[in-house]
């Protein structure tokens, strides 16, 4: 099967001398739901920008479904749908016109563009707003409008750059459901996000980029299995005694009813519950202190804010 995206030794040096990409290589399989993560200034926006054709690469090659962008970028572009981070539509235009115009840019006849616009506006809950000017939409609606616009020409590869930034949780979850649905229907999806929970829930494979280099590229499952310690917060049904001894586990008393416990790789939660039961302690609920991917991300890149790369 041809890969949806193949990046080989991709480099970008800006005129001011900043080396945003130092030769990254990456492959995204067709049908994948892929996360591209990294701290601010790591190079992910530059990578996405090159795929969007808004940034010219300095070296390396990019193939989209086997089509080299240096040989036939217009053909490669027909396979890509793009949802950028910033709103980039004319806010004075009507919602329906934005979609139909986008279809026209991809050579779709007006009738087909209208039909597709209706399909995706319906699916994304914007059909009732089709005659509204884009500026009248809420932030979440504008994000969904950009997704609908990116799908009008029914691309095989959808690239979303921070698609749920600033979107409330309810709306975010409905967008996740929609993205899962189109992925199941066969659309390959590449996602960049700052919500690591989002990446963990949606994506099967992941690449982490930092200082212009890929520092990790694996399946989500493999990556999370490398996590050495998970921290759990246990809400107790009764008050905790002043001192607790859980042999083999490192634990901290947060307050009268909350216990924080480190569970290392190789230890089990069952074993922890047994020890608590032996001491007559009952757990009413339990949750991860931090998202597992977030812990992995921090362990790979370090907790301190990284020096931002100036990509201007």
């Amino acid at each position: 099967m041809t890969a949806a995206l193949t990046i080989s030794n991709l480099q970008k040096r800006y005129p001011n001398g900043v080396e945003a990409l130092k030769g990254i290589s990456l492959e995204v399989a067709e049908g994948d739901f892929f996360a591209l993560l990294g701290p601010n200034g790591a190079g992910k926006s530059t990578t996405i920008g090159i795929l969007f054709s808004l940034i010219n690469k300095s070296g390396g090659s990019v193939q989209i479904f086997g089509v080299d962008i240096d040989e036939n970028f217009p053909l490669a572009k027909k396979s890509i749908g793009i949802v950028p981070q910033e709103f980039n539509f004319n806010v004075f235009e009507r919602v329906i016109d934005i979609l139909v115009t986008q279809g026209g840019y991809y050579g779709l006849p007006a009738a087909l563009s209208q039909q597709r616009a209706e399909k995706y506006l319906q699916k994304l809950g914007l059909w009732e707003k089709r005659f509204d000017r884009a500026r009248e939409l809420s932030g979440g609606m504008k994000r969904r409008l950009m997704i609908a616009r990116a799908l009008v020409h029914e691309p095989r590869l959808l690239i979303l750059d921070e698609p749920t930034a600033g979107v409330d949780i309810e709306m975010r979850r409905s967008m996740w459901d929609f993205l899962r649905e189109i992925n199941v229907d066969g659309t390959t999806i590449i996602l960049t996000t700052h919500y690591l929970e989002e990446a963990e829930m949606l994506c099967r494979n992941i690449a982490i980029i930092d200082h212009g280099l890929i520092v990790k590229n694996s399946s989500m499952r493999d990556l999370l299995q490398q996590l050495h310690t998970e921290v759990f917060m246990l809400d107790m049904a009764t008050s905790l005694p002043p001192s607790i001894a859980l042999t083999g586990y490192s634990c901290r008393r947060v307050d009268d009813h909350t216990l924080e416990v480190d569970v290392d790789k190789g230890q089990t939660v069952n074993q922890l519950f047994s020890l608590l039961s032996e001491q007559g302690l009952e757990v009413s609920s339990m949750r991860n202190k931090a998202n597992r991917l977030e812990e992995m991300f921090v362990s790979l890149l370090g907790p301190a804010p990284l020096e931002a790369v100036d990509e201007s």
């Binding site: 808004l54 027909k78 950028p84 539509f89 004319n90 986008q102 050579g107």
Partner: peptide, 18 residues
């Protein structure tokens, strides 16, 4: 310039339009 200013020119630049 308006399209450049509100970034909607990107709709065209990322599309396959020659």
């Amino acid at each position: 310039f308006g399209a450049k200013f509100n970034n909607s020119v990107e709709e065209l630049l990322v599309s396959p339009v020659p």
